[in-house]
Amino acid sequence: MMIYDLHGPDHAPGPPLEPLPGPHGPDRRVLISPPTPNRQTPDRQTPDRPTPTARSPGPDFGRCPAFFLYLRLVRYGFRRHATYWGAAAAGALTNTVFGVLRAYVLIALWESRPGLGGYDVGDAVTFCFLTQAFIGPMQLFGGGLELPRRIRSGDIALDLVRPAPLQMWTLSEDLGRAAYLFLARGLPPTLAGALLFGIEPPAEAAAFLVCLVLAVVVSFGWRYLIALAACWVLDDRGLNVMSMVLTTFFSGMMLPLVIFPGWLGSLARSLPWAAMVQVPADVYLGRIGDRTGGLAGALAFQCLWAAVLLGLGAALTAAARRKVVIQGG
């Protein structure tokens, strides 16, 4: 049966470009997800009464409904973003260009201070291209969610009364988005870096992949909080700028956190943004040794922040439901 007709004939329109300040131009265009078609409050239907619009029987929701629903949302998020391959290709090009420029800066730094922060030059270059590859999947400049738009239009009320929890729903779509952008915007800069400079192979590929997924979850947890905050603030642009400053600087995207001096370094390495870029990059490089208690420590650090942010998100969702549904906006 088909609860959600996610394969509607109309594909979402092109992604609108919303000007948002960026570190290299306060109005860098940030890809904002397009509105989802067919996001009505879903009717609960019994398996023997398929909706007239159902075009495929879909998986059997009787046995494990939630899992298949979310799996389908992941796939849907992937496909929806796959429509905008032109934007993704252009983004990959930009990430690659910035990767090359940053790599030279890091090389100059490491040549004057070999072994800085426990990295050698090869590590620093690899780190640089990894962080550029993470920009798309981790959505380091912010956005990636359509919640703010739905909050502005008031459609959020429909989302909040849906039987499926909004946060899990949104997370599933975001994982699909991240998976697509990992392929479309993550691999090209990495390959370009390997060709132009030569980068290190992953120390532990399997652990790195797990770490990557956790990093996306942490990134989602943070962006979800920022997005939902639009229920309470009138102009959310200031919030987005603040989020972007914190994320780009404290994730390690601009410079590895291992070279941040003194207390600033210790602080940066313990904040949630470190779990988005620094920790997966360290796992990739195999440089997690004594700093964060080994691989297990690194994963535990990510899980901790994921749990904290998702917990806060759940609380905020409940508050939003009270505000929007019960108080009526």
């Binding site: 092109g14 265009r29 032109g86 934007a87 252009a90 090009l93 930009t94 910035f98 100059a108």
Partner: peptide, 19 residues
């Protein structure tokens, strides 16, 4: 359809000249 291509040169140029 891919206007962001220009970013690589405009913002890339901005980044390049910082150092």
């Amino acid at each position: 359809d891919a206007p962001e291509v220009a970013n690589a040169f405009t913002y890339g140029g901005g980044m390049l000249t910082q150092y």
